[in-house]
Amino acid sequence: MAKWAVVVSPEQYESERLYGADSLAVPGVGDSLDAGDEVLLVAGVDEPVVFGLARADGRGGLRYTVNLLEAPLPAPGIVAAVEEGGALGAHAVDERAFRDIQQRVRPVDTVRRTWLVSVDLPIEAASPGEAVRAFWNYVRELGPAELPAFVWPAGDELAMQAFVLGAEANQDPEED
């Protein structure tokens, strides 16, 4: 099996951070990889990072084996090799460089817990139905770049955190 670094655009990386899934498609990459090839997923941002490990599925997609979206890894050696070969797309990586990154991956607590996620908006409306329609319009228009989502473990409301663009965001104006 070959080892690859697949560099995705900043826009695709942001989308992964916001709407992460078990797999992703990277335009123009699927034909380069054989089923089972191992992949380092690299964000093509100002300071590139490895945000996941994946395997090619043989149908043009990549399935995460390790998701590092919560704690991406800096990868200067991989980034330098990728930059020599161009920007976005698939780049062959030698076994040693791949293993160096793979060994830095720490096991993540895989125990699933229930999280409550809330978006609260004060809506002025004449009826509940109108309020709901206005709510969904605000959600669509503001989106994750402007609208904070509040997250906390079920049963521990005091642990509530606000997230904007998939990252923790302080919403207390007195703490700025």
Rank of each mutant, 00 (worst) to 15 (best):
L18A: 09
E124C: 03
L24W: 02
Q103Y: 06
A134M: 09
A21Y: 02
P173S: 03
A56T: 09
G44W: 04
E175S: 13
G28D: 13
V7F: 00
G28K: 11
P107G: 05
L88C: 01
L73Y: 03
L62Q: 05
A54T: 11
A169T: 15
M1K: 05
P74V: 13
E38P: 00
S32P: 00
G85D: 11
A35T: 13
A134G: 05
F98G: 05
S9Q: 07
L68M: 05
W4H: 11
D31I: 08
E47F: 05
V6N: 08
V29K: 04
V105A: 02
P173Q: 06
Q12L: 15
V7E: 11
P128E: 06
D31W: 03
F98T: 06
G58Y: 02
L147G: 08
A2Q: 14
E83W: 05
W115G: 02
R17F: 00
D172R: 06
P148Y: 01
E84R: 14
V8K: 02
G89K: 02
D22P: 02
V119H: 04
A92S: 12
N137Q: 14
G58V: 07
A35K: 15
L147H: 06
L68S: 06
G155A: 04
N137M: 07
V8D: 08
V49W: 01
A71K: 12
A25R: 15
A169L: 01
L116M: 12
F150E: 13
V39D: 04
G77H: 04
A2G: 09
V45K: 08
A80V: 10
E124M: 07
G89F: 01
D172K: 02
Y64I: 06
G143M: 03
V50A: 10
L158Q: 13
I78T: 15
G61H: 09
A162V: 06
G20R: 13
V82Q: 02
V111Y: 00
D31Q: 12
N170V: 10
Y138A: 15
A75L: 03
R112W: 04
A43H: 06
V82M: 02
L69R: 10
S32H: 11
P74I: 09
E47S: 12
E168N: 04
G60F: 03
G143Y: 01
L88R: 08
E84D: 12
P107Q: 07
L73Q: 08
A131W: 01
A134Y: 01
L62S: 07
T65D: 06
R96K: 12
V7N: 04
S118K: 11
G60M: 08
A54Q: 08
V26R: 05
P76S: 06
S23Q: 14
V79A: 08
P74S: 15
R63K: 11
G44C: 07
L158W: 04
R104A: 09
E174P: 00
G60C: 07
G166D: 04
A5S: 12
L142M: 14
E14V: 10
E84I: 03
A125E: 07
V6E: 10
A80L: 07
I78K: 02
E70D: 15
W152A: 14
V139R: 09
A54R: 08
A2V: 09
G58L: 03
A149S: 12
G20N: 12
G77D: 14
T114F: 00
A126R: 13
T114L: 11
E14L: 13
L33Y: 03
S32A: 15
D100K: 09
D120E: 14
G36A: 04
E124K: 10
P76D: 09
V164S: 01
D34A: 15
